[in-house]
Structure formats: structure tokens, C-alpha cells
Design a protein around this nucleic acid. Structure first.
Length: 378
DNA sequence: TGTCCTTTGAAGAGG
DNA sequence: CCTCTTCAAAGGACA
């Protein structure tokens, strides 16, 4: 139980990860530049990044405009910020409006179909609705009962914060989607409540909790049929009559939360729809965020994990390793999982022999021994 | 129809 | 303990 055992130390992420985080940011950026030969896309991406820098965090933008070099310093910054957040939690973390697009808890009611409030801009809300849900609907609480407005494990000042943390009770939410029309069923025994207030009264517990993380083990468990398991297409309604084990999905990490919120905005801005490209943009934007801005997501992710753990104390990420791709716990799925695993390993090996696998060399030798890296990686 | 792509972070497995 | 792998979201692209 790393999350719990680490308690407050868990905070916003492991420090050691931040090291790799730094590497990624630096190296991947270069990779991306090379990988994306399509000029327009590259331009679009860079423009988006710049734009986001300008809009969201002028400071970060200024720094970043110097580009990659500053990213080398980011990890330190980030590490600092993590420490700072975990120990201080205030340090301006939410004091600055530097990130106006983060009113997670400023939403009057994300479930209101025509809610005009959007996380970042008005135009985004349109897109969000087109996605069938408000990106921030995922931030609605599983149940307020599971968390007091000011959980003891959190710094006390967190609950005293204005803005985001002023709504701590809502903040302590699940980040699983809850589309407006998603009063659908998760499983025959589960119903989903469209409004967070309804969740608030719940005695939702692992046995019968309609939790957004729970999705039916369909062949394709996530994308199509369910958005975080929350809505059911007509055909799915039939399928779900068959008793199946619900699949509890992993809690979203900080970056995933960020992606969920910002994806619609990026899509709206650039009309790109390809997730791979969008994710690249989001990845760069993520790096462009100030530590305070990132801290919000780390904090949310931490709460998400804690809540997830409270709701599903017996759940383990390993469950989904094995339940795997099909979401069906069984021999077949295990076999499929093995196949995929094998495929990925093959790919890894290929990329190993293949020039240009920076991650490999970086992971193997570390940043400080770049002299040991192969040429392309260097 | 299923998988890949692409991102970061968390967590589990294995050496 | 460290490294590697998988999964989480997303939707177009592709075999």
C-alpha cells in the first residue's frame, strides 16, 4: 500500500519519479520533434504549446520559450514543488490565478446539461458536451461520506484554501466520468447517479457502490461503450444483462486528470482529433505548467487514489493486469494479456536494437552517464 | 474488430 | 532496490 503507507509522504508523487519525469520531458521533446515530420502538425503543436504557455502560465511560458534548456531545471523545480506541496500546501499553490482553466470545483453543477461553466473557456464547453460529458464531471465525488471536508491525512490548510480547496468536500472526488445522461447502469446490480449530491448521501461501498471506476468487462472496456464506465449505449444495455464481473479501473494519475480536463480545449483549439497528437500536445503543455499548477493535479490524483482505495480496499492494479484487455477475468483474457505482453516486449526488443530508443538508454544508464548511451539516444 | 499511437504517472512483477 | 512493464484516457488510423 504505497499510497497509504506513505501517508502524507505520498503526496503528489514519488520523488524518484520526478527524475525520470525530467528526462522524459527533455528527451521526448526531441524525439517528438523528429517523429513528427508533418510540418503542419508540428507547427500546430508548437503554436499550441506557445499559446498555452501564454494563456495559462506566462511565467512558465517565458521560461519555456527559452525551450528545452529550461526543462532541465524543471525536475528540480518539480521536486521542490512536490515537497513544497506536501509540506506546505499553500505556498501559493492555489493563490494564483495563473491557471484560470482549473476551476474544477467552481463548477456550479457539472451535471447540468447546459452548464456554461467550462474548465478553461466558454468555447470549450461546447466541445465537452459533444463528448457526452463535461470533462469535469469526472471530478465529482464518489461520496462525501468517504472523506471529510478536511481529511486528517491532508494538511489542514488545504481545507482552508479558497478557490479550489475551499470546496474540499467536492474536491475529494472521483475523477471518473459521470456523463449527464449517464444514469445508466454499470451492472445489473448497479445504478448510477447523475448528480453528485446523490452520491453524497450514499453508503456506497465496494459491494454495491456505483463507482465510476467500475466498468463492465466488455470486450473493449473503456473507450466506446463507456466513458469511465458511466454511460451505456443501447446495445450495451442488452449485453449488460449478462452477469459479468465489473472491472474496477485504475484511478487516474495527475497527468491523466490533466488530460481529461484539457483535451477538449486542445481539440477545440486545433480541431485535431487524433488522440496521439493531442496527447503529445498535452504532454508538452504539462511540462509547461508551473509546479503550482501541476501540484493541483498531483493533489487531486492523490485524493483520487485514496478514495479509490477506500472504496476498493481489496482492489489492486494487478487485477487489471490479469483481467487485462478484455476485462474478463478468465483464462482467455489472461491469454490475450500474455499475447499483448509478448507483443510489447517484442517491440521493446526491437526498439532496443533499433537506433533511437532513448528511453532504453536513459533507463539503463541514467542521465548522468549519457556517455554510455548509444549514439541516437545521445 | 482489434490494436496501435502518444503522453505521464502509479503500481506490480521480477531480477 | 532497481528496472521494466502494464494500465489508466482518448479517438483516429490501420491491418
Amino acid at each position: 500500500m504505497p499510497q497509504l503507507s506513505s501517508g502524507g509522504g505520498d503526496d503528489l508523487g514519488a520523488n524518484d519519479e520526478m527524475i525520470s519525469f525530467k528526462d522524459e520531458g527533455e528527451q521526448e521533446e526531441k524525439i517528438q520533434e523528429n517523429a513528427f515530420t508533418e510540418r503542419d502538425l508540428a507547427d500546430l503543436k508548437s503554436s499550441l504549446v506557445n499559446e498555452s504557455e501564454i494563456n495559462q502560465s506566462p511565467n512558465a511560458a517565458a521560461v519555456r520559450r527559452g525551450q528545452q534548456s529550461e526543462q532541465r531545471g524543471f525536475p528540480d523545480k518539480h521536486r521542490e514543488h512536490l515537497d513544497g506541496v506536501s509540506k506546505q500546501q499553500d505556498g501559493g499553490m492555489y493563490k494564483s490565478p495563473a491557471y484560470p482553466g482549473y476551476p474544477f470545483l467552481m463548477l456550479p453543477d457539472p451535471y447540468l446539461p447546459n452548464s456554461s461553466v467550462s474548465p478553461s473557456s466558454n468555447k470549450v464547453s461546447v466541445v465537452q458536451q459533444s463528448h457526452g460529458m463535461h470533462p469535469l464531471t469526472s471530478l465529482l465525488p464518489y461520496s462525501n461520506d468517504h472523506f471529510s471536508p478536511s481529511p486528517p491525512h491532508l494538511p489542514t490548510d488545504m481545507s482552508q484554501k479558497t478557490g479550489v480547496h475551499r470546496h474540499q468536500s467536492q474536491d475529494l472526488s472521483g475523477y471518473y466520468s459521470l456523463p449527464p445522461g449517464g444514469v445508466g447502469q454499470i451492472t445489473p446490480s448497479m445504478s448510477w447517479f447523475p448528480h453528485s449530491l446523490m452520491l453524497g448521501t450514499s453508503g456506497m461501498h465496494p459491494t454495491g457502490i456505483p463507482h465510476p471506476a467500475i466498468v463492465p468487462p466488455t470486450g473493449k472496456q473503456d473507450h466506446d461503450q463507456y466513458d469511465r464506465g458511466m454511460y451505456v449505449k443501447p446495445q450495451e444495455a442488452k449485453r449488460e444483462k449478462e452477469p459479468k464481473k465489473p472491472v474496477i479501473k485504475k484511478p487516474l494519475n495527475a497527468f491523466m486528470l490533466y488530460m481529461k480536463e484539457m483535451r477538449a480545449k486542445v481539440i477545440a483549439e486545433c480541431t485535431l482529433k487524433e488522440s496521439a497528437a493531442i496527447n503529445q500536445i498535452l504532454g508538452r503543455r504539462w511540462h509547461a505548467l508551473t509546479r503550482e499548477e501541476q501540484a493541483k493535479y498531483y493533489e487531486l490524483a492523490r485524493k483520487e487514489r485514496q478514495l479509490h482505495m477506500q472504496l476498493y480496499p481489496t482492489w489492486s492494479a494487478r487485477d487489471n493486469y490479469e483481467a487485462g484487455l478484455s476485462g474478463v477475468a478468465g483464462e482467455k483474457s489472461k491469454a490475450d494479456w500474455g499475447k499483448k505482453k509478448r507483443r510489447k516486449r517484442e517491440k521493446q526488443q526491437d526498439s532496443n536494437t533499433d537506433p533511437g530508443s532513448p528511453k532504453k538508454c536513459r533507463a539503463r544508464f541514467g542521465l548522468n552517464q549519457q556517455t554510455d548511451w548509444c549514439g541516437p539516444c545521445r
